[in-house]
Design a protein around this nucleic acid. Sequence first.
DNA 1: CTGTTAGCGCTTTCAG
DNA 2: CTGAAAGCGCTAACAG
Lengths: 337, 337
Amino acid sequence: MKKVATIKEIAKQLNISPSSVSRALHDHPSIGLRTKMQVQKLAEQLNYEPNQIAIFFKQRRTYTIGVILPNLKEEFFSNAISGIEDVAVKNKYHVFIGQSHDDVEKEKQIVTAMKNQHVDGIIVSLAKYTKNYDHFTDLKRNNIPIVFFDRVPALSNVNKVYYDMAEGTKEALEYLITKGHRRIGIINGPDEMKSSKERTDAYKQVMIKRRIKIDMSLVVSTDLTPESTKAALEELLSAKPRPTAILAINDYVALDAMHHAKKLKLKINKDISFVSYANLPITSYLLNPPMASVEQHPYMQGTKAAEILMDILNHPKEENDNYSDVKINGELIIHDK
Amino acid sequence: MKKVATIKEIAKQLNISPSSVSRALHDHPSIGLRTKMQVQKLAEQLNYEPNQIAIFFKQRRTYTIGVILPNLKEEFFSNAISGIEDVAVKNKYHVFIGQSHDDVEKEKQIVTAMKNQHVDGIIVSLAKYTKNYDHFTDLKRNNIPIVFFDRVPALSNVNKVYYDMAEGTKEALEYLITKGHRRIGIINGPDEMKSSKERTDAYKQVMIKRRIKIDMSLVVSTDLTPESTKAALEELLSAKPRPTAILAINDYVALDAMHHAKKLKLKINKDISFVSYANLPITSYLLNPPMASVEQHPYMQGTKAAEILMDILNHPKEENDNYSDVKINGELIIHDK
DNA sequence: CTGTTAGCGCTTTCAG
DNA sequence: CTGAAAGCGCTAACAG
């Protein structure tokens, strides 16, 4: 069993040509039933498995897609990739993964590696500081389509799937306002993230609509590390008057902030309330989860992005510049009973 | 920029042979400095990128490894794959992933797909009900090495990395005993999991050593779903006398059990204490985490497994049947202050 | 319906 | 030091 059967081998044993074997194996219309049967039988016996690499080489297609995301540790991303994988498998595609660990250089390297590996397409969620998108847009020259999701670039001529930040933010803020909050702080992400600006914009809009004075000292940033979040929280708490509620960029940040607030002897959801984004399953195990969290449907974002990519791949290159731009609506999940 | 440069192309433009170009590109010893420079310059200009697929085809190697695991949602596995990926990247390998979702059929399909994709090696953590390992051992015929981790098969002639269940379990039980517990229940995993038996064995050993009567009605199983865990807990609670402490197969199960216990008006860590395995980061956010949890070092298990595989791949096939069998020691992390 | 031929891009003897 | 030639496994014109 050392050597694997090849088409050639089968052909020789049956005294026919390799092309006939190939045709028989593929149920080609113009092939005799007799030879077809013979070939299939022998192929079975010899345990023939087509050499995919040779096929890829020939067809210039690998049936592989690459997925680049910041990390897999966050439930958000691991759920998203599950969605991607499910769709890919259904379409007979394989999935390469690469974690940028929020490092732009690493992200570039991964792109290069995937390009060299000849993936048929790429799905990306950007590293948090990625500002320049050339390493992605260059892929057009290699005819490798890209679909961005969740952390998408501020470009219009790309395929993207993302959560509708404005809508969810407004909903979350309205909720806090009905609960009586007027001084509402925001712990935003880095400025490079498109969502940060959107969140700030939505904040301003709601405040104006509700005729609440906008105080930009209530909008601070974290680089998403616990330390930075701690600093951001303290900055907010030093505002006068101090905010009574805080909207945090995601659950992890909210949890870090809550943790620190607790240390500062603040009563969570009493002295200060938290609302955030993602609605991670882990929050269901918490004693004091954020009051509410905007569900961002990572699995759905993943499947949607993958479906768009599959669609592009399955449909011959119509070179029209027709880009998908899909907004996923979040849902505000209220945790406080 | 539509067409990609090939070696042939470069050769033609320089009026030399493809072989020389290939040599120049690879810093082959026997190549003239002049031609080498010329070639490298032109390659640069033409943006030459070697066609990996062609190379793979030729070399019968893909520099790709496959990773099969139950799912990516569990922090344990997403951490493990991070470890694998880090090592792979360092060794210039790529990583294919496949989630079995604990379904044996799916697991088989993934193995077949990876085999056809000609991965150079595979790293696996078994689906929970996998009893038959033929789909893995068959890979030997294709010369595809396998390394199992965490959920490993009960075979001796395979490479494996796993957590030392006996040691950790003993440590956890001893801890409970020093805390005064005598009636200690166990919520085990399915019987198909090798670790279940090991846990039970370790339990018996400790009980004998500590001269505590062994009561097998205190050892129950869950299929890891919350419902099943609930049932398991109730079964334990119906024992007379009721156990005062429970050792659960992992943190998720412990959390589900604790959740249910709370509903039954039991005071956690008072009426009943929990100890478990994994020590997931999420537990740090909990009000009432398990009293203690055995850290199983998923990242380290991943890196270790990947290193073993890299070692096999980088070292020419010495056909000696030399299998790695690496035990990772857990550490009991005490959460109750 | 079947065989012949060529070739995908690259590496690697084998000659010179 | 360099070139010519073969071949990896498979497919797909093109001829019969």
